[in-house]
Nucleic acid binder design. Structure first.
Lengths: 222, 222
DNA sequence: TTGTCAACTGTCAGTGGCTGCCATAACGTC
DNA sequence: GACGTTATGGCAGCCACTGACAGTTGACAA
């Protein structure tokens, strides 16, 4: 009933017949129209019927491309998650695990090295992310998505450090704490007025840097 | 559209007229019938119509007592949250903040000192919690609920330590990390077969104890 | 006791997200 | 150009949830 995620998407490396191109175009049209409507009039105040009317396809078709309404909002976010994982994989093995996650997260939101092929800009990603964080219905779906991301991250960290993720809970624990702080950061950022990428990265850095001190015994010594 | 929480509940310390008693009875009937159905045939496979048919009230009445279907499932959970906050308030000021949260969480699931007045046993709480953790639809609502709990916890911690929660991020950060680990623990526990309170408390202890080591620079030294 | 007010409730119609089913049209292929 | 595959549209329907209106019932005062 509430799973989320996309489906029916044409594979990037797949064949390039007319049919495939048409599917791609339909999907892009649905995606961009939906985002435009979401961002102008709000997620809750946009119905699926509005979206399909604007694109001129049936509602049934919409639900063949996206498993549900939420999935459209998260289609863009997938790129950010993928980039985070890619950055994490590239961190040097000598780096402590928490530091590696920190760097990967900050780099994921960097405007440098934007993927030139796609028309999904960081600007759009930020706006989508901001919408997610400020819409309760999407916020719930966001955390659900993060469960999967956390699992992948934990697996990566465990592999990096050469430990067994089943018996050694450290990878899970580290990722869970990291993820908790990231979630809180995103939420705080989403509720603010100044909402650029820079503000997000600053806030992320500030919070992650405070994690060590926050867990240490007494705070008064600091 | 997806707020959650209960409403229309008769206040515990309120008046005790016939009307009030009737309301209380209706609410209890809805609550217990819903939980019984949820636990026997699953949350998703139970419709609101089934619940109201069993209690013999209209669907409209159901939605006057509970803002939505989720809210019934969390009515029990509220007791656990309240107990956590109460336990946290009672922790000695000399205790480090993270340790205080740890103790409070473990005590909140203790079977000792059960509230005698209510007919909500710890056994029922555990079963409800387990259902929440193993049902995706409820899992989302759970995290949404936790946002509120986190805010209250952070405020309490900040007050304990005498810091300003607005300028000093340590309280927020500590609570976010703690909360992240707790969520992960609950999720892991919910997916297991052996699901008693004891297993939950053991897992909680194990994970929270690993947080320090997990954040320390290198894991190989340990 | 009775009348009045407010609160609780049921009924009904309707919206919005979402799914299954089936016919049809568009493509790809030989 | 015929044929199998696949995308699509349309429709009927489920379920969660809401607004509006009317009827009922308990509370309270006269």
């Amino acid at each position: 009933m509430t799973r989320g995620q996309t489906s029916g998407a044409p594979r990037p490396g797949g064949p390039c017949g007319l049919r495939e191109r048409k599917k791609r175009r339909t999907r892009e049209a649905l995606l961009h129209t939906a985002l435009r409507l979401f961002l102008t009039q709000g997620y809750d105040r946009t119905t699926v019927d509005e979206i399909v009317d604007a694109v001129d396809v049936s509602q049934r078709t919409f639900f063949r491309y996206f498993t549900n309404k939420e999935a459209v909002a998260f289609a863009v976010q997938e790129a950010v998650d993928a980039r985070f994982l890619a950055e994490l994989r590239q961190r040097p093995a000598s780096e402590p695990p928490f530091e590696a996650m920190r760097r990967a997260a900050l780099n994921a939101w960097s405007t440098r090295g934007e993927s030139g092929g796609s028309d999904i800009t960081v600007e759009l990603q930020v706006r989508a992310y901001r919408m997610i964080e400020s819409t309760p219905a999407l916020h719930a779906a966001h955390t659900r998505r993060n469960v999967g991301l956390e699992r992948q991250t934990a697996a990566l960290i465990a592999e990096r450090e050469g430990i067994d993720p089943e018996t050694d809970p450290r990878a899970r624990v580290a990722v869970a704490a990291f993820s908790g702080v990231m979630r809180m950061t995103g939420q705080l950022w989403g509720g603010r007025q100044d909402a650029g990428v820079d503000a997000l990265r600053e806030l992320t850095e500030l919070h992650l840097d405070q994690l060590g001190p926050a867990l240490s015994g007494s705070w008064r010594a600091a």
